[in-house]
């Protein structure tokens, strides 16, 4: 892979631009879906069927006044929202969205994902601590606690996928699934645990403690307005894209499907996007039905329910390796 292709992958497809547009679309899908669950209509007048509403929100926030509060750490206040948005875009650049190899392809990119996870949370925490007010402090505290809880689950499910396939790169994962079928067939428990961990990672309703409206205003983004808020919002949407893309690539066969490789990779990209939207719609549906857990119940709910699942899955994977 030469430099120009890598830059294209990072900035256009499947990196920044693709992730940005998909993020806007994901937010639209979520708002419409939640509205349907609540028997509402959802965004309607912005573009056809309201599909441009997230874009209007983003542009509005960009042109609005930015009001940094007193005593703010200027550097982090300015930089952290950008870093938060950059992490998922960079993570997406490694995902093999299409058989036409556009993504950055290295032998250990799958392992590198774990670093990017913690980097994204670090950027968010820095955004919160840039303004030291009671609500942001509590929001960041909850964010870090939640991160340490779900990250154990997410990392171990990803490790189980690596254990079964023997792959340390996304290319290896996709090649294994092309031969043996999607990993969800062998690791349904791992998939379930990963989806719940994704809910916690995206701060969706059962685990939306870091910005719980009724308790701590808007949590770590209480004091942001204008440009910073625009980037924090788009960072959340882009994390949703990245998280769903990870689940699709690891468990659901990524771009594999009927007519794989036709039309110069367009069909694979369409498969990938369709699976991603399906995963995110499931996540949004679960979150629209759930109530929030308590802070004290967080570790109990996630670790108590999911670690046994992951352990059973681990035994299954070891047995599979031993038998096959």
């Amino acid at each position: 892979m030469d430099g120009a292709t890598a830059v294209f992958a990072a900035l256009v497809f499947p990196g920044l631009l693709f992730t940005f547009l998909m993020g806007l679309f994901f937010e639209y899908v979520e708002r419409k879906l939640v509205a349907r669950v609540q028997r509402r209509i959802g965004p309607l007048y912005a573009g056809p069927g309201g599909v441009l509403q997230p874009l209007y929100d983003f542009v509005k926030l960009l042109v609005k006044e930015e009001l940094p509060p007193e005593g703010v750490d200027r550097l982090y206040y300015w930089l952290a929202p950008l870093l938060a948005a950059a992490a998922p875009a960079y993570g997406m650049a490694f995902i093999p969205v299409s058989s036409f190899r556009l993504s950055i392809d290295t032998p250990y990119d799958y392992v590198f994902t774990l670093f990017l996870f913690s980097f994204a949370v670090f950027a968010t925490a820095a955004a919160g601590y840039a303004v030291y007010s009671p609500y942001t402090a509590m929001g960041v505290g909850r964010l870090v606690v939640q991160y340490s809880v779900y990250e154990a689950i997410f990392a171990s499910t990803l490790a189980l996928a690596s254990l079964q396939t023997g792959a340390t790169s996304f290319r290896g994962l996709i090649e294994y699934q092309a031969l043996h079928g999607p990993l969800a067939l062998y690791q349904p428990l791992g998939l379930a645990a990963a989806v719940v961990a994704l809910l916690a990672k995206l701060e969706k309703t059962p685990f939306d403690l870091p910005h719980a409206k009724q308790e701590i205003v808007a949590g770590w983004m209480t004091e942001y307005s204008g440009r910073g808020l625009a980037f924090l919002h788009i960072a959340k949407d882009m994390s949703a894209v990245w998280g769903s893309a990870l689940i699709v690539a690891v468990y659901l066969g990524g771009p594999l499907g009927p007519l794989y490789g036709a039309l110069g990779g367009l069909v694979d990209a369409a498969w990938f996007v369709a699976k991603m939207v399906a995963v995110y719609a499931a996540v949004a549906f679960i979150s629209s039905l759930a109530g929030r857990v308590r802070v004290r119940g967080l570790a109990e709910k996630i670790w108590g329910a999911l670690l046994p699942l992951v352990f059973v899955q681990f035994l299954v994977v070891v047995a599979l390796r031993w038998l096959v």
Partner: peptide, 19 residues
Amino acid sequence: TSRYDIERFGAKLVPSPRH
């Protein structure tokens, strides 16, 4: 709520006045 739904106009309730 569902009968009137001002989210049709892109309106939503935000928790912080800065938003």
